[in-house]
Lab assay of single mutants.
Amino acid sequence: EVTIKANLIFANGSTQTAEFKGTFEKATSEAYAYADTSKKDNGEYTVDVADKGYTLNIKFAG
């Protein structure tokens, strides 16, 4: 089991951190699914992958 950390960075400057656990593939998939659901309210996003994929910096356009 691994933990994927997602740092969500919103257009207004606020941030949120979420953690997803499971296999690398499952946790990563859940992090992207979470970003997709947040996209409806926060606009399109880009992802900067860090820490060999264990940290995702997800920046929303607003």
Score class of each variant (00 low, 15 high):
residue 60 F to N: 00
residue 42 N to Y: 15
residue 46 T to F: 08
residue 21 K to R: 14
residue 14 S to N: 12
residue 56 L to C: 02
residue 21 K to N: 08
residue 16 Q to L: 14
residue 43 G to E: 07
residue 45 Y to G: 01
residue 8 L to Y: 14
residue 19 E to L: 14
residue 32 Y to A: 03
residue 21 K to W: 10
residue 62 G to Y: 09
residue 55 T to F: 05
residue 45 Y to K: 01
residue 9 I to E: 06
residue 4 I to N: 01
residue 56 L to N: 00
residue 16 Q to P: 01
residue 2 V to Q: 05
residue 28 T to H: 06
residue 9 I to G: 03
residue 48 D to W: 11
residue 55 T to D: 02
residue 56 L to D: 00
residue 32 Y to Q: 04
residue 1 E to F: 14
residue 35 A to F: 12
residue 60 F to E: 01
residue 46 T to W: 10
residue 7 N to D: 02
residue 18 A to R: 15
residue 41 D to F: 13
residue 14 S to V: 13
residue 1 E to V: 14
residue 10 F to Y: 11
residue 25 E to M: 10
residue 55 T to Y: 04
residue 22 G to Q: 02
residue 7 N to P: 01
residue 44 E to Q: 10
residue 41 D to A: 13
residue 30 E to Q: 12
residue 58 I to W: 02
residue 7 N to K: 09
residue 22 G to L: 03
residue 21 K to A: 07
residue 61 A to R: 12
residue 54 Y to F: 14
residue 18 A to I: 15
residue 17 T to A: 08
residue 25 E to P: 07
residue 51 D to M: 04
residue 53 G to R: 02
residue 14 S to Y: 13
residue 45 Y to T: 01
residue 23 T to S: 11
residue 14 S to K: 14
residue 15 T to K: 11
residue 51 D to I: 03
residue 6 A to H: 01
residue 42 N to T: 05
residue 43 G to F: 04
residue 52 K to M: 14
residue 33 A to Q: 10
residue 30 E to G: 05
residue 1 E to I: 15
residue 13 G to A: 05
residue 19 E to W: 15
residue 33 A to H: 10
residue 11 A to T: 08
residue 39 K to N: 06
residue 25 E to S: 10
residue 33 A to D: 08
residue 29 S to V: 10
residue 60 F to Y: 11
residue 17 T to C: 12
residue 7 N to R: 10
residue 6 A to E: 01
residue 33 A to I: 08
residue 20 F to D: 00
residue 24 F to I: 08
residue 33 A to T: 08
residue 45 Y to L: 01
residue 47 V to C: 07
residue 61 A to W: 15
residue 23 T to H: 06
residue 53 G to Q: 03
residue 46 T to H: 09
residue 1 E to D: 11
residue 19 E to C: 15
residue 44 E to I: 09
residue 45 Y to M: 03
residue 40 K to W: 11
residue 15 T to I: 15
residue 44 E to D: 12
residue 5 K to W: 09
residue 37 T to H: 14
residue 10 F to N: 03
residue 2 V to K: 05
residue 42 N to Q: 11
residue 39 K to F: 08
residue 16 Q to W: 12
residue 36 D to R: 06
residue 49 V to W: 10
residue 53 G to P: 03
residue 48 D to I: 13
residue 50 A to E: 12
residue 50 A to D: 10
residue 35 A to E: 01
residue 48 D to A: 11
residue 55 T to W: 04
residue 47 V to A: 05
residue 60 F to M: 02
residue 46 T to G: 04
residue 47 V to Q: 01
residue 33 A to P: 00
residue 29 S to L: 14
residue 29 S to Q: 15
residue 39 K to E: 05
residue 47 V to R: 01
residue 14 S to M: 14
residue 4 I to D: 00
residue 12 N to A: 05
residue 33 A to M: 10
residue 34 Y to E: 02
residue 26 K to A: 12
residue 29 S to M: 14
residue 26 K to V: 11
residue 59 K to C: 11
residue 48 D to F: 13
residue 55 T to A: 04
residue 57 N to T: 11
residue 13 G to Y: 05
residue 11 A to V: 09
residue 30 E to H: 07
residue 40 K to G: 11
residue 15 T to P: 05
residue 41 D to C: 15
residue 55 T to M: 06
residue 43 G to N: 04
residue 25 E to I: 10
residue 53 G to F: 02
residue 21 K to F: 12
residue 3 T to K: 07
residue 7 N to M: 11
residue 5 K to F: 10
residue 33 A to C: 08
residue 42 N to C: 12
residue 34 Y to C: 06
residue 44 E to L: 09
residue 43 G to K: 03
residue 42 N to A: 11
residue 20 F to Y: 05
residue 48 D to M: 12
residue 11 A to P: 13
residue 13 G to I: 03
residue 41 D to R: 10
residue 12 N to E: 05
residue 13 G to V: 03
residue 56 L to Y: 04
residue 8 L to T: 02
residue 33 A to K: 12
residue 44 E to S: 12
residue 53 G to Y: 02
